[in-house]
């Protein structure tokens, strides 16, 4: 009898090169059973490569990795029975119905036809696809394809689930829907490793986060820890002219831990307090008889996190949705 491992996923010094390009440069990861672990990074950081190594699709050049205590390189067939994978592009057969896709995957995971059929119906129900179950997948919307793709990863009830950018390219509503499903899976006892380019998504879902850049983990911690270390929101106020801006900055000195910074007609103030500070700033200005013309609040973005971690902006700072479109597949 093998004892239950405490770590669902463990990776040590994983390296992978594609020709001269270093995709993974010695990545270490430890994911305890029952956690949602987020792998955060921009396009080309190595997130997908890491997932492909951990799901036995790709062989690492060096390093060791285990899933539920089993080696992804030496016990790959055994690992495959324990994992579910939903990739970046909905990997489905467009010319099968939703139900047929699930049953096909079911029959390829060595569960009996009867169980596969029953499980398919269950999953269609759970992902609100019952009505669309007998329609060809080529008629599905992007959100429906993603849900079906995730359902396909769950047919054989895998205890460890890998989700590669599960919400990239989805509309906000479908995104929130998918988040709920992910939380539900963990409540059922699954362990999830997901990759994302969105700070907000990592923040909402992940118990533990690793920030990855150029194939290396550059920061790790809970979302709260990371944000405390890395990010602060920036409040930017715009005034009628330079003099008013300077006067406003003098008034606002001392309201935040950081001093206001004047740039022409604008005043920038960094803060970790968010809306609380905003109220204080506006009240102070009001008392001083100054009215700002514009007001913007920049929440810490992935770019900010990178800026503060690496001292340089991310190489690919295109908006996420466009970035997903550039890959040309999936997300339609």
């Amino acid at each position: 009898m093998t004892s239950m491992p405490e770590l669902a996923i463990q990776a040590q010094q994983i390296r992978k090169n594609f020709g001269k390009v270093v995709a993974l440069d010695g990545v270490n990861l430890s994911v305890p059973v029952g956690q949602i672990f987020g792998l955060l990074g921009p396009n080309g950081a190595g997130k997908t490569t890491m997932i492909r190594v951990l799901t036995t699709v790709l062989r690492a050049d060096s390093g060791t990795a285990t899933v539920m205590g089993r080696s992804v390189s030496h016990e790959a067939p055994s690992v495959r029975g324990l994992i579910g994978l939903a990739g970046q592009y909905a990997a489905l057969d467009p010319n099968l119905t939703g139900r047929e896709n699930l049953r096909l995957v079911g029959s390829l995971t060595q569960i009996s036809g009867r169980v596969a059929a029953q499980r398919s119906d269950e999953l269609l129900e759970r992902f609100s696809l019952s009505d669309a179950g007998n329609r060809l997948v080529r008629t599905y919307s992007g959100g429906m394809r993603r849900r079906l793709d995730l359902a396909a990863a769950l047919v054989h009830r895998p205890p460890v689930i890998f989700l590669d950018e599960p919400t990239t390219g989805l509309d906000p509503e479908s995104r929130v829907e998918l988040w709920a499903v992910i939380k539900e899976l963990v409540a059922d006892g699954a362990t999830i490793l997901l990759t994302t380019q969105y700070m907000e998504e990592a923040d909402r879902l992940a118990d533990q986060l690793a920030v990855i850049d150029h194939g290396a983990v550059i920061a790790e911690g809970t979302p709260t820890e990371l944000k405390r270390r890395l990010g602060s929101s920036v409040i930017e106020l715009g005034f009628a002219d330079d003099a008013t801006a300077t006067r406003a900055a003098e008034l606002l000195a001392g309201t935040s831990t950081e001093e206001p910074h004047v740039t022409g007609r604008g005043v920038q103030i960094k803060s970790n307090e968010g809306t609380k500070l905003l109220t204080r700033l506006l009240r102070t200005l009001d008392q001083g008889g100054i009215e700002p013309e514009t007001l913007t609040v920049h929440e810490p973005s992935l770019d900010d996190v990178f800026l503060s971690l690496t001292g340089k902006p991310t190489e690919d700072s295109a908006p996420p949705v466009e970035a997903a479109g550039k890959r040309g597949r999936g997300a339609r």
Partner: peptide
């Protein structure tokens, strides 16, 4: 076609 849709990549991670 199966490679393009990612269907075969899905297969690679299945215990089949």
């Amino acid at each position: 076609a199966d490679l393009k849709t990612g269907f075969i990549e899905r297969f690679k991670a299945l215990p089949m």
